[in-house]
Simulated assay, not measured.
Amino acid sequence: MEAGTLIAAFVIGLLGGVHCMGMCGGIVGALTLGIRGPVPGERARPAPFLLAYNLGRMTSYTLAGALAGGVGWFAAHLADVNQAQQVLQVLAGLFMIALGLYLAGWWHGLVYLERAGGLLWRRLEPLGRRVMPVRSPAQALGLGLVWGWLPCGLVYSVLFWSLAAGGAAQGAALMLAFGVGTLPNLLLMGVFAARLATVVQKAWVRGLAGAAVAGYGIYMLLVTW
């Protein structure tokens, strides 16, 4: 896989911070406020918990990317490989454009995709409740592993991109790069949640991020065609 593709996935994760605030901000805020130290009444330092939570989340993203990449590779080899790869690349580009419009708040069609993912989430969400309240980084890691499957149009769009990555390893690398891109926003969110919320909710910030992602989707289509 080309380094440029991984960098693009990282940047999309970074720009997706305008969406992460709405989807995961409450989870991260609750995790930060709810952690307790080993001594009753004592608060623990949030950094190890936030790192463990995000490590679990990115692990789930990477696993999902490997599954998607493997499925895409298998599907491509059932038909003409080059033709199937082109079809997947076109669909991935269209999803990137849809994601850009979604991030900017100009179109909300991906909400239906998130609702479909809710069917799986209803089965997984009770697992996250078993490790709450979070009292150790190990519990935060377990929570992150579960919450990595939270229905999210941003994640689903990049996951669809993983279908066209060329294989399980490539799909895993793509989702890992995306997950690393989301990391700065979610780590800062645990410390500066209120201030970040004010910034990312500005229309021009969302519009700029969405336009950049949609622009990359158009670039993907042009390269494929």
Rank of each mutant, 00 (worst) to 15 (best):
L110F: 10
V146C: 09
L150H: 01
Q139P: 02
L154S: 02
A165I: 07
G93K: 02
P126T: 05
W147S: 00
Q86G: 15
L159T: 08
G148S: 11
W107E: 06
L119R: 03
L163N: 01
V131M: 12
R129D: 10
L143E: 06
A98Q: 08
W147H: 03
I97N: 01
R123D: 03
G144M: 11
Q83A: 14
V134G: 04
Q89R: 15
H108L: 07
L143N: 04
G105Y: 09
L154W: 03
A138D: 12
E125T: 04
W149V: 12
V87H: 05
W161H: 12
G93L: 07
L127V: 09
F160C: 11
A140H: 08
G142F: 07
G105V: 12
I97P: 01
L110P: 06
L120V: 11
L101Q: 04
P133N: 00
W161Y: 14
Y156H: 15
E125H: 03
V87R: 07
G128V: 10
L103R: 06
W149R: 13
F95H: 13
V87Y: 08
Y156I: 15
Q83V: 14
Y102W: 14
L91P: 01
G100Q: 05
P137T: 05
A98T: 09
A138G: 14
V134P: 03
R129I: 01
G144E: 08
G128P: 08
L163F: 09
L99H: 03
V87I: 15
V131I: 13
L141K: 00
V134M: 06
A138S: 14
L103C: 11
G148M: 10
L150N: 03
A92R: 02
S162T: 04
L127G: 03
A164H: 08
A164K: 05
V90P: 05
L88N: 04
N82C: 13
L120P: 00
L94E: 12
L103D: 06
L145T: 04
G144F: 08
G128F: 11
G144V: 11
R122A: 14
L119C: 00
L119K: 00
R122W: 12
P151V: 01
M132S: 01
W106Q: 14
Y102I: 07
Y102F: 15
R135F: 10
A104P: 05
L110Q: 09
R123V: 10
C152Q: 01
H108W: 03
Q89L: 14
L143D: 06
L94A: 12
A104K: 05
G144S: 12
A92Q: 04
R122E: 13
Q86S: 15
G109E: 10
R122I: 12
